[in-house]
């Protein structure tokens, strides 16, 4: 069982020349506050900035304690033209942040990482998607296991703009074994 949060994100993309640049952002739903009250977090949230790009954050809504949590960030060109993206790293850098109900981030994928600051130009054809995924082992950045409870997950995709593309949060419930 998965919750899928679809965000149409059009801000913060590379400012390099290309066939098609996403338009300026419009409305946004969902939210990017790590400390969001879980009662306000929808099971699915769609944010529309336009009709060119979707960033989809996928994660299970419920897992057993200790069970690996696969998290996926999918970037798709849903517009009719080629779309140029500017992304960080030769291996594309992307971040997931897992926070407790009180907002405290317990795990951040890129915590303490020193990432080569190279800009990768990627062009997505209409309908083409880029998928970025990792597995969270339910341990904090300090290596301690987290306990059962409510968590939120957020995704970030750095570009060459000051703010990364953000997706989420989605809700994750860890149940006792």
């Amino acid at each position: 069982m998965h919750t899928r949060v679809v965000l149409v994100l059009l801000s913060g993309l590379a400012s390099v020349a290309g066939d098609c640049r996403p338009p300026a952002p419009g409305t946004q739903s969902g939210g990017d506050a790590v400390a969001a009250d879980s009662a306000t977090i929808p099971d699915s949230a769609v944010t529309s900035y336009g009709d060119s790009l979707q960033v989809v954050l996928s994660a299970p809504t419920r897992v057993q304690v200790g069970e690996p949590v696969r998290i996926t960030l999918r970037v798709r060109n849903v517009g009719p033209k080629r779309l140029d993206l500017g992304l960080l790293g030769r291996e594309i850098a992307f971040d997931f942040l897992v926070a407790r109900k009180d907002g405290v981030v317990v795990w951040r994928r890129l915590e303490g990482e020193m990432i080569p600051a190279i800009l990768q130009l990627r062009t997505l054809a209409p309908g083409e998607a880029l998928e970025l995924a990792d597995v969270w082992d339910q341990r904090t950045n300090q290596g301690e296991r987290v306990g059962p409870g409510e968590y939120t997950i957020r995704g970030e995709l750095p570009t060459d703009e000051p703010e990364p593309l953000r997706a989420g949060p989605v809700r994750l419930t860890i149940t006792g074994g």
Binding site: G86, L88, A93, A117, I118, L119, Q120, T159, D160
Partner: peptide, 8 residues
């Protein structure tokens, strides 16, 4: 620092 600053 940002992506693309490599080599600065």
């Amino acid at each position: 620092v940002g992506s693309g600053d490599s080599g600065s």
